[in-house]
């Protein structure tokens, strides 16, 4: 796979990322799995899960992981560059031209709808993870346990993720 292809894909994804990082999952699925078959669904879910517990912006971390999978370090660098470039160009232009854009009523209403779209995308992302990677009673147990802990206790998300990993490693289950 050519480096320019990788750049092109991430640039296109960068242009379409509106409203938050969750949109990147269906976009990567479209470009890397359905169109080119460069990645497996399970791998993508792993990247999403890993990106959540590493520092940094989720969309960016997912791009680093998937870029590496496509072409090692070069792939990661190009993926990040491609993803950032559209943001950079557009934000630069907007900051020069418009400035009080958020005061406009129409923009506020636009937002209101976009936020609801984000809910749908997030819901589908969760559904996809369930479909692809939650296959045992143990994963359901962990899911509800961590959900309970995050709602009713004040532990930080990172602590809870580490806790779940420790429980899973202590329990074992996978044999080679």
């Amino acid at each position: 796979m050519k480096l320019f292809d990788i750049f092109k894909i991430y640039f296109l994804i960068g242009c379409q990322l509106i409203g938050g990082g969750y949109v990147i999952l269906p976009l990567l699925r479209k470009y890397l799995i359905e169109k080119r078959n460069w990645l497996k669904e399970e791998e993508l879910i792993e990247y999403v899960a890993l990106s959540q517990c590493l520092p940094g912006i989720i969309a960016l971390n997912i791009s680093i992981f998937s870029g590496w999978r496509l072409n090692k370090l070069k792939g990661s660098l190009i993926a990040v560059f491609g993803l950032i470039l559209p943001s950079f160009i557009i934000v630069s232009l907007i900051s020069l031209i418009l400035y009080k854009i958020s005061d406009m009523k129409i923009v506020e209403n636009l937002f209101f709808g976009i936020r609801l779209s984000m809910l749908i995308l997030l819901f589908n992302m969760i559904y996809d993870i369930f479909k692809t990677s939650m296959k045992s009673y143990f994963s359901y147990f962990l899911f509800f346990f961590i959900l309970f802990m995050i709602i009713y206790t004040s532990f930080s998300p990172v602590i809870l993720i580490i806790l779940a990993i420790l429980i899973s490693i202590l329990k074992g289950g996978h044999k080679n």
Binding site: L50, I129, M134, Y140, L147, I151, I161, S168, H174
Partner: peptide, 24 residues
């Protein structure tokens, strides 16, 4: 492909999914 890493993901994915659900 080691046992350790499979168990790592077996714990990470449900936890990460729970956090997403909480955000949702």
């Amino acid at each position: 492909n080691t046992k350790l890493l499979k168990n790592f993901f077996q714990g990470l994915i449900p936890a990460s999914c729970a956090l997403l659900t909480y955000t949702f």
